[in-house]
Simulated scan of single mutants.
Amino acid sequence: MKKFLALLLAMMMVLSLAACGEKEDAPAQEPTGQEETQTPEAPAEGGTVGVCIYKFDDAFMTTYRNALQEILEGKGYTVTVVDGNNDQAKQNEQINTFITQGVDALIINPVMTSAAATIIDTVKSAGIPTVLINREPTADEMAAYDKLVYVGCDAAQSGTFQGELILDTPNKGDINGDGKVSYIMIQGDPENIDAKLRTEYSVKALTDAGVEVEQLNLTRGDWDREKGQTICANDLAQFGNQIEVVFCNNDDMAIGALQAIQSAGRKVNEDIYLVGVDALDAALNEVQAGNMTGTVLNDATAQASQAVECMEGLLNGDTYAAGEQSVYVDYVKVTPDNVADFMK
């Protein structure tokens, strides 16, 4: 009997030690709370992004959208880019389709700046992180949604730089020496804030420098090369040698204006000055050849990179406070002296 009890006691001790050994190998973990505070990473692979462009046949936005697509796909996103055909109603449908498809994020170049409030309300209701590009809403409109950011450039700066390009000429734009600079303005879409600010600040740079100005004509050209040519041709026919400076809100219109200037037998930088904005390849070639006084680099690639960076921040949980939702990329003046630095 004693031998049996001793054997039973020994077996119980062995089982007890084995159980203790298992506990030491796999000690219990107390919750740290870290799981609740970790920020989810952006869906770098398998994430879907919808990109809405106001119209594909805009030269600058072609450069911009190609850069966006290349950057996003290089990071592993599935990207769908759609053409709004300059039709806000069509773009609204495209945005709603992307929302229905469940995209992770949206990058939108609005057809109309005035539609921004509607767009913002739509993406806010869907809870989709959104980056607006190229056409800037008001701060009050953007403040309605904290998962929204605008990426672009300060259009006032581009206008100022255009004016400074004229001020940097030997006669500050006063070719005929009558004490004032007589100009025509070929404007983009006046509903677009960029067009408004470029128009205003290009001339303001001259008046702030004490230069007297005379506006001979201002005509809407809708960012279009053919319209730029037609407008400039008509103005040259009407005002002739009175025109000393041709301001264009973008390079496409400036290249059209150049065709009209050359057809009229005028010579840029000798008897007329011509400036644009965007630094398109075609414009850079004309600056280098002496056929444009200068242009202003609107860096599409830098803006595309910044837009993607902001989008990924939003996907990672970043939010933007009211008044801090605009992220700007600087413009750069391009002249015959530095144009080679910007050519491919």
Score class of each variant (00 low, 15 high):
Gln238Glu: 14
Gly228Trp: 05
Val245Gly: 09
Asp224Thr: 15
Ala233Cys: 02
Lys227Ile: 13
Asn217Asp: 13
Leu218Pro: 03
Asp224Leu: 07
Gln238Cys: 04
Arg225Gln: 13
Gln242Asn: 11
Asn234Tyr: 03
Ile231Cys: 07
Val245His: 03
Arg220Val: 10
Arg225Gly: 01
Arg225Trp: 00
Ile231Phe: 00
Gln229His: 12
Asp222Asn: 12
Gly228Asp: 05
Arg225Cys: 03
Glu244Phe: 10
Gln238Pro: 04
Gln242Cys: 02
Trp223Ser: 00
Glu226Leu: 12
Trp223Tyr: 13
Glu226Asp: 13
Leu236Gly: 00
Asp224Phe: 08
Val246Thr: 03
Ala237Asp: 12
Ala233Glu: 12
Gln238Thr: 14
Asp235His: 04
Thr219Cys: 06
Glu226Tyr: 07
Gln238Leu: 11
Ile231Lys: 03
Gln242Met: 08
Thr219Met: 02
Ala233Gly: 05
Leu218Asp: 09
Arg220Ser: 15
Arg225Ala: 09
Gln229Trp: 05
Asp222Trp: 00
Arg220Thr: 15
Asn241Pro: 01
Arg220Pro: 09
Thr230Gln: 15
Thr230Glu: 13
Asp222Tyr: 08
Lys227His: 10
Gly228Asn: 07
Phe239Tyr: 14
Gly240Leu: 14
Thr219Tyr: 06
Gln242Glu: 15
Gly221Phe: 11
Ala237Lys: 05
Ala237Arg: 03
Lys227Gln: 12
Asp224Ala: 12
Trp223Val: 03
Leu218Glu: 12
Asp224Gly: 11
Glu244Ile: 00
Val245Ala: 08
Val245Asn: 10
Arg220Cys: 07
Val245Pro: 14
Asn241Gly: 01
Gly228Glu: 08
Ala233Val: 02
Asp222Ala: 05
Gly228Ile: 05
Asp222Cys: 04
Arg225Lys: 13
Leu236Phe: 01
Val246Lys: 06
Thr219Asn: 00
Gln229Arg: 11
Ile243Phe: 10
Ile243Met: 06
Thr230His: 12
Thr219Arg: 00
Val245Gln: 03
Glu226Ala: 15
Gly240Ala: 15
Ala237Thr: 15
Arg220Lys: 14
Gln229Gly: 11
Arg225Met: 11
Lys227Arg: 10
Gln242Tyr: 09
Gly221Met: 06
Phe239Met: 10
Gly240Pro: 01
Leu236Ala: 00
Leu236His: 01
Gln242Thr: 04
Ala233Lys: 05
Lys227Pro: 03
Thr219Ile: 08
Ile243Ala: 10
Leu236Val: 03
Asp235Met: 06
Asp224Lys: 11
Ile231Glu: 02
Gly221Leu: 05
Gln242Val: 00
Ile243Val: 09
Gly228Met: 10
Cys232Phe: 07
Asn241Arg: 10
Arg225Ser: 09
Ile231His: 04
Val246Cys: 00
Asn234His: 02
Asp224Tyr: 06
Arg225His: 05
Glu226Gly: 13
Gly228Lys: 00
Asp235Val: 04
Asn234Gly: 10
Glu226Lys: 10
Gln238Val: 09
Thr219Ala: 06
Thr230Leu: 15
Leu236Tyr: 02
Arg220Asp: 13
Asn234Asp: 15
Gln242Leu: 05
Cys232Ser: 09
Asn234Glu: 15
Leu236Thr: 00
Asn234Ala: 12
Gly240Ile: 12
Ala237Cys: 02
Ile243Gln: 01
Gly240Cys: 12
Ile231Gln: 01
Asn234Leu: 09
Glu226Asn: 12
Phe239Arg: 02
Thr219Phe: 00
Cys232Ile: 04
Asp224Glu: 14
Asp235Glu: 13
Gln242Asp: 14
Gly221Thr: 15
